[in-house]
Design a protein around this nucleic acid. Structure first.
Lengths: 181, 181, 181, 181
DNA sequence: TATGAATGAGTATTCATTCAT
DNA sequence: GATGAATGAATACTCATTCAT
């Protein structure tokens, strides 16, 4: 995906991003020192600052790509034309997160507790789509139903990411049955 | 709760606890330095360590009383004899948290992301009570219903504590109606 | 040894002295905190300062009694009338130190490296007595002989106190034979 | 010993080592703070830890070179083929220590009182060489003679380093005469 | 681009000491 | 005499960041 001549540099830049993501997600941003990132990435500490200016710049860079990943996941739902599909796919959503992308999501959920990074509007498009879907299906309070399902989605995601969710499939079926999708 | 003659000492100890709770909850444990706690509590930094040995000891001390507060809230539900009351009171629960106790709860929810402090079993008694209630009310999958309601409870709490929950009452009514309680 | 009415107070004061000696001797003065002394002595930290003003006062108090013990040991030699006895008793000296008094001696030897506490004149009376003895016995250089024997005495003591002296008796006999005493 | 291009870095590292040695030797390891070392070395405190990880690492680094210096001094004696030379050179040894290296030796002698750094086996090669020499010269108890001479060596060194040894030359001649070397 | 030496401010914690009781 | 709460200065060590190369 990169021009040949840049492979070397990008290699290191990406190693930094990868290591930082892993550490930020699992040990926390504050608890992760730039020196640890550098060590794990196998680069000099100075390089982090050359590429990202400062620690916050590195974090922002990671958050950006995390949001891209989130939007990719949402995009599929947003373009559905069928109400039931929208709901079904929303229920499926948290169970579709790849293990390889857990760290992105962990970081996102953790950061929601930092005022600076908590952006409740991020879910807006999905909420609206769900509201539309529940309206289509003649639910009495479509927007509250949407809110409720999003909440369920967030709780499930949280539990999956924290690693304490044993009966995932059973629960998914239960939800689908509940919403008749 | 204290003998008159001890007011002086407890005063400072409690100021430390109060300041630390506020800072831990709002800025994060790692982001809060003991020197900042001391400054805000109006005591010398050393006193923190005389009273709590170390920062973790201080945190644990706070967590303990946070858990007591949580158990107090749960206790009322656990002793209900009526199934519908159990569900109704569970729905009410997150809306009952006093503003003055937000910090306790914020801290608890934030810490769930730290492996060391994440104890999913804490909710077990409530889950079991809810399972019993849904069984009484002839729900098809009582334990999954309980799990779902707890998830909703956690999401609502999270949103309330993060300060982005505008339609609290409306949503509460919606839920109660959904569960016919 | 104390008046009945003072037993309690002296008890605590002596516990402090005992604990401090042990810690000073084995872990070093600097490495021993007053709080550790208090803990081991089973008294409050404040009491140390009431009895000895400060840490240095405590140390000086210990050093004083250590010097008394040293002088007691030397006294017997100094009053000998027979030259050979003087030498023999000097050789015996380091092997006579009671285990129970090791800490006193350890502390003395360690402190010799602190300029403030290094008092080379402490040995003067013994050196003079030995010089006299070697003169009596017609040694060519009595004062240098005295100096040499004192050095040997200090080395032996050091090794005994440090716990690495396996062939004590053999070495003692060897020395006595060397000096024909 | 350094490449021109590295002078800058090594300069600071060596200044740290030099300052630390001086302070450790004269004021004691415990009594010397890293901040004092940094101040005297004219570097930032952090640099100490970048170069040596921690205070103990710095101490170990100094001890290592101290031991090298010691081994260098011993090496000459160990390779002697003539028994008398061995003894003569051992007697000369403490008087050969350069003023510029006093601190290395002071530190070594002081540390002998710290269990962790007291390694009585360090002298073993010299003791064996001396035992051989006394055997060659038909002394009755060669190994005890060796032990005794080493003790004398240690006492002399101690006194020289502590600065209370006025009649050095006289004493050296006295010893050489005693051993007929 | 990349390194690694260097820094200054900060971190948790310890220490000797004071003082009200 | 004795306690223990309280302090301020110090301690070893870490951190994000800079900069010469």
């Amino acid at each position: 995906m990169q021009v040949i001549t840049h492979i070397y540099m990008t290699d290191k830049k990406e190693k930094i991003l990868k290591s930082a993501l892993e550490l930020f997600a699992n040990e926390g941003v504050n608890a992760t020192s730039t020196s640890k990132i550098a060590k794990i990435a196998g680069v000099s500490e100075g390089l982090i600052f050359r590429h990202f200016n400062n620690k916050k710049g590195l974090l922002n860079s990671i958050i950006e790509s995390a949001e891209e990943k989130a939007n990719d996941l949402f995009a599929d739902i947003l373009k559905q034309k069928d109400a039931k599909s929208v709901i079904k796919k929303t229920i499926d959503l948290p169970f579709l997160i790849k293990k390889s992308e857990y760290d992105y999501w962990k970081l996102q959920f953790k950061l929601k507790w930092e005022e600076e990074y908590n952006n409740p509007k991020k879910m807006q498009p999905l909420i609206e789509k769900l509201t539309w879907a529940f309206l289509e299906l003649n639910y009495e309070k479509p927007s509250l139903e949407a809110q409720h399902l999003i909440q369920t989605f967030e709780s499930i995601s949280t539990e999956i990411l924290k690693g304490n969710f044993s009966n995932q499939n059973e629960f998914k079926q239960f939800l689908k049955h509940k919403y008749s999708v």
